[in-house]
């Protein structure tokens, strides 16, 4: 708690620490966006940028973060999202009377099963996590294309309410995110699992000889990650109103980008979920700001790449210090 003093908050050395730097960048971006575009501060835009648009990526980034903290990586998130959004749409199409609860439960079980498969290959069989989860990704793509080659729409309003219903002007999906975030933050910061996760990610050998069940912790990280990807997919199915073989494309890299910008170490054992959520907000505000300022799409791609390079370089330098 010593870092919370006013002196420390305005201390530049504290501000550039991983996990805090992201908030400094976010504040700078908020100020720059507000000054540059009169539309940025409109209620509609703020609601979109903070309360709706980031939710899917934020939950999926939590999944990636948990796995990254354990010292692994998950390259199957995009295909898992595609599979589960397609599955949700397919279930509603093929079984019109199915309840949203049943669909959500099936998605959750599917997510956990995908996490178990990733964990089995990367942790039990010791296949390098990058390759193991890429293999899962390819396998899931095959399953989707076996099921359908076309996108499926028509998710009913009873399921779409999660992304569209509001209470006092606040989309309920924000509360959905907030609950998931608070549970995860408590699990990582106040529960023994969190301590074991960080210790395992930092150095699994030392963690092992200290009595931490390393294999179980890494496996649990993948299972938890799978469940979180399912929760993200439930929201995304609701928001998109359908699914298809490519609906999740890009999510593997976007979740890694957000997590890294937010201070989650690619080497494992470091970083906070809050920082990763800050990384998601940075990506969202960046995209929104570029749209509002009418920046050329090619320049947008270039700038997004630059942000990732700078973030990785910054944290690499911090690590070496």
């Amino acid at each position: 708690m010593k870092n919370l003093s006013v002196k420390n908050i305005i201390n530049p050395k504290e501000l550039v620490k991983p996990g805090k730097f992201v908030w400094l960048i976010l504040i700078v971006m908020l100020i720059a966006s507000s000054v540059s575009s009169p539309i940025f501060l409109t209620s509609r835009n703020l609601r979109n940028v903070f309360l709706i648009q980031p939710i899917g990526l934020a939950i999926a980034t939590m999944a990636q973060s948990v796995v990254m903290i354990s010292g692994n990586i998950d390259m199957s998130i995009a295909s898992a999202v595609s599979l589960m959004t397609t599955m949700a749409a397919g279930l509603f199409r093929d079984i019109p009377d199915i309840s949203p609860f049943t669909v959500s439960l099936l998605l959750l079980l599917t997510g956990i099963a995908i996490g178990a498969l990733n964990g089995f290959m990367a942790v039990i069989l010791r296949i390098p996590a990058f390759m193991a989860t890429l293999a899962t990704s390819s396998l899931l793509q095959g399953v989707i294309f076996f099921y359908t080659k076309r996108p499926i729409g028509g998710i009913p309003k009873s399921f779409r309410f999660l992304a569209s219903y509001k209470v006092a002007g606040i989309p309920i999906c924000f509360f959905y995110f907030l609950i998931i975030f608070l549970v995860m933050a408590a699990l990582l910061n106040r529960h023994r699992f969190g301590n074991h996760l960080y210790a395992t990610g930092s150095d699994d050998y030392i963690a092992g000889i200290s009595g931490i069940p390393v294999v179980r912790v890494k496996m649990q990280a993948y299972l938890l990650g799978g469940a979180l990807v399912a929760l993200a997919s439930i929201f995304l199915s609701s928001r998109m109103g359908g699914g298809g073989p490519t609906t999740g494309d890009g999510y593997e890299l976007d979740t890694i980008t957000a997590a890294v910008i937010g201070g989650i170490s690619l080497a494992g054992g470091e970083g906070k979920l809050m920082g990763a959520i800050g990384g998601v907000f940075i990506l969202m505000i960046f995209s929104n700001f570029m749209n509002l300022m009418d920046i050329n799409p090619y320049i947008q791609m270039f700038l997004k790449g630059m942000i990732l390079i700078l973030a990785v370089a910054f944290y690499a330098k911090k690590d070496s210090e």
Partner: peptide, 30 residues
């Protein structure tokens, strides 16, 4: 999902006409 966000951004800008080339049509219905 980005296209859904883009559409929201364009509406925020007060466009009078919206032309959409869908990425995946079934997934941008809302």
């Amino acid at each position: 999902e980005k296209q859904a966000a883009d559409i929201s951004d364009l509406l925020t800008k007060g466009v009078d006409l919206l032309i959409i080339q869908p990425s995946i049509g079934a997934a941008i219905v809302p």
